[in-house]
Simulated assay, not measured.
Amino acid sequence: MAKLILTHEVTGLGTPGDVVEVKDGYARNYLVPRGLATAWTKGAEKQVAAIRKARKAREISTLEDAAAVREALQARTFTITAKAGASGRLFGAVTTSDIAEAVSAGGGPSIDRRKVEIGQPIKAVGDYQVQVRLHADVSAQIDVRVVPEA
């Protein structure tokens, strides 16, 4: 078992700053090469404190605030304009950062692109539902409409 410090949120494992123990292969082949975690050392405790402080400043602090943001997000449909062919197929795909920018541009709250989860890749024009994790216990299903560029 390898002891690691998460530097990014990993669904099902933890949030940035958490110290976790995972199997050696998972650490060596997935978490560390992708920059999602670093090896745990005694000197890394300062790094953990800095990561936690930065996360606390960014995240929604209370459950009530998260519920209010969820209601605001779910009440609207956010539109993303993308280059598409005649059949409605996109040149590329809609990314999590595209969705985060669309929410901010559409008058919604500023959300972190790493909190956006896309179930299936969005590669065609149409309406989609995307999940946004606002808090440990609160997530929102937002409606995203992808339209072709004129």
Rank of each mutant, 00 (worst) to 15 (best):
Y30P: 10
E101N: 11
S139Y: 07
V116F: 12
L13K: 09
L6P: 07
L134M: 07
A86K: 11
R145P: 01
T41W: 03
Y128P: 00
G88C: 08
G35A: 06
V125T: 03
Y30N: 14
A37I: 04
I51Y: 10
S110H: 12
D65N: 11
L73V: 09
A75Y: 03
L4H: 06
V19C: 10
P33A: 06
E9C: 14
A66W: 03
T81Y: 00
T11Y: 11
D127G: 04
R76F: 02
T79N: 04
G35V: 04
D65R: 12
D112N: 15
G92H: 05
V130G: 01
P16V: 10
Y26E: 09
T62R: 12
L63R: 15
P16Y: 09
G126E: 01
G88L: 07
G119C: 02
Y128K: 00
K3M: 09
A150M: 01
R52T: 10
V10M: 08
K83Y: 02
R58L: 14
G126I: 00
A27D: 09
V116R: 07
V32A: 07
T11C: 05
G14A: 13
T38I: 15
A105V: 01
A72Y: 02
I80N: 01
A44I: 04
G14K: 11
A105K: 05
V125H: 00
G108R: 02
D137Q: 15
E149Q: 01
G35R: 03
A150G: 12
Q131N: 10
A49N: 12
T95S: 15
K53F: 04
T81A: 01
V147D: 02
A124N: 02
K115Q: 13
W40E: 05
V19F: 11
G43T: 10
T96I: 04
L31Y: 12
V19R: 10
V94Y: 01
A75F: 03
E21P: 03
T62I: 11
